[in-house]
Computed example of a mutant assay.
Amino acid sequence: MPPPLTLVLAVVLVGYLAVASPLLGKHTYDRLARTRDQDPMAYRRMFTLWSAELWTLAAVALLIVAVEPNLDAADIGLVITEPLDDTLGTIVGFLVAAAVGVLVFRRLAAKGKPIPGQQAFNHLLPRTTVERWYAAGLSVTAGITEEIVYRGLLIAVGTGALGLSTEVAAFGALAVFVAGHLYQGWRGMLAVTLVGFGLTLLYLRTGSLLMPILLHALIDLRGLVFTPQPRRELVGHAG
């Protein structure tokens, strides 16, 4: 049976991820939507807060692994188990698909048409070069930390400490992951469910978080940094 410290940390972490983090995320996102036009620093403050929160959660996840003798880096996917050639091939394939998607979105934006799914997180889109760097930083941060916490640790804790099957543990971890995107509304959360399901399948198939981390970061970079706003929105923000 896991030592008390492991259980306490795991329960606190899961409780925070399932309840506190979604509510905090929605609160800060709604506040950004209200104040961004009047406060030029609001975007940077929120992205700094979200990045700090994610790295803290990842640190707690790694602490749980460190104090739990039945968990190690391999149990939460921090190993490379697939041949490097297969991994590189998957990355190249995704980059090609992502490049095509960016070109399509740019054409839509140039014609003043809305980008599919963009409305769910519209206020996260950067408007300046500095904000693009903040968006890029959060994208990479989310790719690393969310995969460690939601995919690696939660599935391992579910199958290990709670004795759940891999499928049930993965479903529970996915549900908590989707809840963390409450600020996007039900349409955005539906899209997050599909993306999270794909990342979960990839992790379970490879046994490593390397590919989910890379793909997660690339998906977020495409969504935040490389997806332009429609022309009419850019005109509306001018001045």
Rank of each mutant, 00 (worst) to 15 (best):
residue 128 T to M: 09
residue 125 L to G: 06
residue 135 A to F: 12
residue 112 G to Q: 07
residue 103 L to I: 14
residue 127 R to C: 07
residue 86 D to Q: 10
residue 132 R to Y: 11
residue 98 A to F: 02
residue 131 E to H: 06
residue 91 I to M: 10
residue 100 V to Q: 03
residue 88 L to Q: 02
residue 133 W to G: 03
residue 112 G to Y: 12
residue 100 V to L: 12
residue 119 Q to I: 13
residue 116 P to V: 14
residue 110 A to C: 11
residue 121 F to H: 09
residue 112 G to N: 07
residue 103 L to H: 07
residue 122 N to V: 15
residue 85 D to A: 13
residue 122 N to K: 09
residue 97 A to E: 08
residue 89 G to R: 00
residue 101 G to L: 09
residue 124 L to N: 04
residue 89 G to E: 03
residue 118 Q to Y: 10
residue 119 Q to H: 08
residue 110 A to K: 04
residue 95 L to V: 12
residue 106 R to T: 09
residue 120 A to G: 01
residue 131 E to V: 04
residue 98 A to R: 00
residue 112 G to W: 12
residue 122 N to Y: 14
residue 136 A to E: 04
residue 94 F to A: 05
residue 93 G to T: 02
residue 122 N to D: 10
residue 85 D to M: 07
residue 127 R to A: 12
residue 108 L to D: 12
residue 110 A to M: 12
residue 131 E to Y: 06
residue 122 N to E: 15
residue 128 T to G: 10
residue 130 V to N: 02
residue 115 I to F: 11
residue 106 R to E: 14
residue 121 F to L: 07
residue 91 I to Y: 08
residue 95 L to H: 09
residue 123 H to E: 15
residue 112 G to I: 05
residue 134 Y to R: 00
residue 133 W to Q: 00
residue 89 G to N: 04
residue 108 L to P: 06
residue 121 F to Q: 04
residue 89 G to S: 03
residue 123 H to P: 03
residue 115 I to D: 13
residue 132 R to F: 13
residue 105 F to S: 03
residue 130 V to C: 03
residue 92 V to Y: 05
residue 103 L to Y: 13
residue 91 I to T: 08
residue 134 Y to W: 09
residue 120 A to L: 02
residue 90 T to D: 11
residue 99 A to K: 01
residue 96 V to C: 09
residue 120 A to D: 10
residue 93 G to K: 01
residue 87 T to C: 01
residue 103 L to D: 12
residue 90 T to E: 08
residue 130 V to F: 10
residue 124 L to P: 01
residue 109 A to R: 01
residue 110 A to F: 13
residue 99 A to M: 08
residue 114 P to H: 15
residue 131 E to M: 04
residue 102 V to P: 00
residue 108 L to W: 12
residue 123 H to I: 13
residue 89 G to L: 08
residue 125 L to V: 11
residue 115 I to P: 03
residue 85 D to S: 13
residue 115 I to V: 13
residue 128 T to E: 11
residue 134 Y to D: 02
residue 128 T to W: 09
residue 111 K to S: 15
residue 104 V to W: 15
residue 107 R to F: 15
residue 133 W to T: 01
residue 108 L to F: 14
residue 92 V to L: 11
residue 86 D to C: 11
residue 132 R to G: 05
residue 110 A to V: 13
residue 99 A to W: 04
residue 107 R to E: 14
residue 100 V to S: 04
residue 114 P to G: 14
residue 96 V to D: 13
residue 119 Q to P: 02
residue 126 P to Y: 05
residue 89 G to D: 07
residue 104 V to R: 03
residue 85 D to I: 11
residue 86 D to E: 14
residue 86 D to F: 15
residue 120 A to V: 02
residue 132 R to E: 08
residue 133 W to L: 10
residue 110 A to Y: 10
residue 91 I to W: 10
residue 85 D to F: 09
residue 112 G to V: 07
residue 117 G to N: 04
residue 137 G to I: 09
residue 93 G to P: 00
residue 132 R to W: 06
residue 94 F to W: 10
residue 133 W to N: 00
residue 103 L to F: 14
residue 95 L to P: 02
residue 90 T to R: 02
residue 103 L to W: 14
residue 94 F to I: 01
residue 87 T to A: 07
residue 101 G to F: 10
residue 129 T to H: 10
residue 124 L to A: 05
residue 134 Y to S: 00
residue 129 T to E: 08
residue 103 L to C: 12
residue 126 P to W: 03
residue 137 G to F: 07
residue 101 G to V: 06
residue 115 I to S: 12
residue 116 P to M: 13
residue 105 F to Q: 01
residue 97 A to I: 04
residue 87 T to I: 06
